[in-house]
Structure formats: C-alpha cells, structure tokens
C-alpha cells in the first residue's frame, strides 16, 4: 500500500454517540508506531465511553504496532473505557494469533458489531 511514511497512521476520528471510531491506514512498524501510539492515547484523553479502532486500512503491522495497541488497552482498562478492534486484514490477524493477543482484545467483524 502506498503511504506517506511521515503521516500519522490514524487517518480520522469520528464520534458515534459516546463512542469514537478511529480509522487507521498504512503500514505500522517501528518507524510509525510511536506516532500511532500517541495518537491512540490522545483519543483516550477525549473521554469516550468506547474506542473502536478500525484497522481495515492496515496492510502490515509488526510487534511494535501491536505494542501500541497493548499500551492503549492498558490505558483504557485503567480509565474504564471500552476498546474494540475491527477490520483486521488476514495478515494483521495472523500477528495477533502468533502473539495470542487475539484472546486478549475484543476483535469484531464489523463496525456495527463493535458499536453494539
């Protein structure tokens, strides 16, 4: 996937009721993971009841990208914010399976399911 390596992986945020849907795109590796993590933690600071992270535009993610999501999970647990992931490509899903984090995160098939 073509991408500007200097742009934030977080492409957009939108409110759906009291939830925030965060759309992510591009490859997420060591080069972009710190910016990714900071963008995600900034969302928590806006006090949504739930965060839905849409990874449908992410073609590649390594363990540094996964670590950013684990950090987000830790923050949301501490602050009582719900967190769901949606739109995982097969490749990204596989990284979660290898690291067994697919059993830790709430992973949904559709945005509707994630918002329900």
């Amino acid at each position: 996937m073509n991408q500007d390596s200097h742009s934030s992986p977080v492409q957009s945020e939108r409110w759906v009721g009291r939830a925030t849907v965060v759309e992510v795109a591009g490859d997420i590796d060591l080069h972009r993971s710190s910016q990714f993590q900071q963008s995600l933690l900034d969302v928590v600071d806006r006090n949504p009841e739930r965060i839905v992270v849409d990874l449908g535009g992410v073609g590649y993610m390594d363990s540094s990208g996964v670590a950013s999501l684990v950090k987000l999970l830790s923050r949301t647990r501490k602050t009582g914010v719900g967190l769901r992931l949606v739109g995982l490509t097969r490749r990204v899903q596989s990284v979660f399976e290898i690291t067994r984090l697919n059993t830790v995160f709430e992973i949904c098939q559709t945005e509707e399911e994630a918002l329900a």
Partner: peptide, 16 residues
C-alpha cells in the same frame, strides 16, 4: 505470552 504488556514479542514471532 501470558504476561500481557507492550514489547518483547519479536523473538517469539521469529522463532514461531
């Protein structure tokens, strides 16, 4: 892997 925390997963992935 039961210790859910950021980081330290690279070697596991490589060996897997």
């Amino acid at each position: 892997l039961d210790d859910v925390r950021p980081g330290g997963l690279g070697v596991h992935i490589i060996k897997k």
